[in-house]
Design a protein around this nucleic acid. Structure first.
Lengths: 354, 354
DNA sequence: CTACAGTGTGGGAGCGCTCCCACAGCTGGG
DNA sequence: CCCAGCTGTGGGAGCGCTCCCACACTGTAG
């Protein structure tokens, strides 16, 4: 630290130079000819201010270019006017790539109207998880958004016990006590499988995500439901357990093919798995979609570039982000303990792979 | 020691007895039997503390689970201990998708060691740009990272004049006065084109990004340089002006093909453009790589899924993020006005398209 | 006239820190 | 013996806000 270069203190206002220091509420009050309390009331939109005073204050604010000091406000209100978006690092790779950006984009769009700040916290290991706990315990945010929740993730429990307003993207299970927003995964999967059946597929397999994630369970559930609705028995040999990744998709597809060479349709719980599966199918001499029809999930950028372009289930990710932010703001402001849970519809984007 | 040291912790009985009551520095001091100043010194790592006092304070901190109040600290130091990552919204789409996540991931990794917070600010229109200006002017962050700079972007100029420590990803031009980190775009492009020439291509075209971005210029420059080094004249008819997008790639490729049907290699300044170009080439009956070899830039997820898989220039994006954060922290801490500029090497990932 | 609620207002107190000054204890040199 | 010059320490002041109490001033009722 350099001991020089201190700010030139403007002890004597008349000393010539324009003051570099940011104006304070007190200075606004002086200029407007009112007290601090009145300025504060105007800034915070209190109705108990005369029109005349309000106008004087607003003029003074404009003239001085006054912006309230957040730290001072936080110190006294113990609001921070910021929320955290927590992302388990491992997941950023797993997700269909636009997922992450789109969530952020939605959240940010919603927050743009308010003066909430968005803090981004990536958590990649146990140490950082501990730090996050300390961080949240210290009440340094007004609310938390959590992306990608595993069934055994300790974070939601922590949030619950700290009573910090929070909204999850996805949920841990049917009885999720926290607020959440998620896509209609089961419905999307069901739609996809019905599409395969309608095309004439009779042996429809599926590639699942890790089953400790509710998303994966829900997509598998939708697959199962569509089959049963169509009068097909649920057949475990047609279920390939995978992990949402491309390599996982390849491996599971190979096994599936070995077990059931006659399969003629595959619903994959993610696009990248579907991409991996398509490679394996092609290598095995199957034509897509003629011999085997394939559907992915996410409608990610990958889906548009496979050969043939992939039919996929689209979830409204940006909308999910927006909704999460909106629910969180509600929860912060009303402090009502009502959990808010929203399910958004999915959509089947039909391309050439099915 | 002092009989007055007890704290009436039920000043406001309230309607529900909030158990929160975070311990303050004062309580730590009381428990450790020292003064506030000493506790503050221990927390801030001052050397002027006796071993005995330090230990007593550390014990007290651990016992109370004390965490310093950031707002109070900010109020007096006018440090915020947070930096902003500014992302022009339009760009999140343009970039090869992992770009955004990888930058964040790198920045976050570097910040994890410190107790800096990462603020994410997306800017999608003029209104938000104005808000950002006000925000930065109000000194609400200690430093700023900026992703994706256009030549005429007003933000860097603002940062410069406000003298806020900042680091850009990429630069506006050769004479960039701010600190920046960027990949060796020219070198990567040169490498790609040399690869094409070595393969035997004699009519190598290129698809550029928007030329008001230095990245695009640099990649074009590398293309040109490689050709000239190999004794080929630079031929404007082989240059397709595009905009990094898939659709842009398609359009430009069609024009290129119309102008120069005999071309046998294309270096594309982004993977998605290359993907678009490959579609057009295939539609025109060209085999890849036999008739026309194609190379992309970014080594994004798209490159792995095109048919055939795409040869592409990889930039170390996460490393760029890390480096940006590191440079910014340096700049914040030393307040030296030395600009720091780092160029990271690129790498050619050879797959089947060239 | 007094009483009293209802408005708008000023400004003291205090949030939890850091900064900095004063001072106590301890050297060691004159 | 004193007087420096250290080091370690306590605690006052104050950062810029919000909260809230006290205090004008109304106007209406008793």
């Amino acid at each position: 630290m350099s001991p020089t270069a201190q700010r030139p203190d403007a002890l004597h206002p008349g000393a010539g130079g324009r003051a570099t220091a940011r104006p304070t509420l007190e200075e606004v009050a002086a200029l407007a000819g009112v007290g601090r309390g009145t300025v504060s009331r105007v800034i915070n939109g209190s109705p108990r201010v005369s029109a005349k005073a309000r106008e004087a204050v607003q003029t003074a604010i404009a003239e001085l270019g006054y912006v309230p000091n957040r730290a001072a406000r936080t110190l006294v209100t113990s609001r921070t006017d910021s929320i955290a978006l927590v992302v388990p690092e491992a997941e950023t790779r797993l997700f269909s790539e636009p997922y992450f950006s789109d969530i952020i984009s939605g959240v940010s769009a919603e927050l743009a109207e308010t003066d909430m700040q968005l803090l981004l916290i990536l958590v990649r290991n146990q140490r950082e998880r501990d730090r996050l706990s300390a961080y949240l315990t210290a009440q340094r945010v007004d609310g938390v958004l959590v992306v990608s929740v595993h069934r055994d993730d300790p974070l939601p429990g922590l949030l619950e016990s700290l009573e910090i307003p929070s909204v999850l993207a996805g949920r841990r299970g049917d009885l999720e006590p926290l607020s959440y927003v998620h896509a209609d995964n089961a419905g999307g999967a069901r739609m996809a499988v019905r599409h395969l059946l309608r095309r004439g597929c009779t042996q429809v397999a599926t590639l699942t995500g890790p089953l400790d994630m509710e998303v994966a369970q829900a997509r598998l559930g939708g697959y199962r439901r569509a089959l049963e609705e169509a009068g097909h028995a649920y057949d475990e040999e047609l279920v390939g357990l995978a992990d949402f990744t491309e390599e996982g998709g390849r491996v599971a597809m190979r096994e599936l093919l070995a077990r059931r060479p006659e399969l003629d349709g595959v619903f994959c719980a993610s696009d990248v798995m579907a991409a991996g599966a398509m490679q394996v199918l092609r290598a095995a001499g199957r034509r897509i979609p003629d011999d085997v029809a394939v559907i992915g999930f996410d409608d990610s950028i990958v889906a548009r570039h496979t050969d043939p372009p992939m039919t996929s289930v689209r979830q409204p990710i940006e909308e999910m982000g927006r909704t999460m932010a909106r629910l969180l703001l509600d929860e912060i402001h009303e402090r009502g303990r009502a959990r808010r849970q929203v399910v958004l519809a999915t959509e089947l984007i039909v391309r050439d792979s099915a």
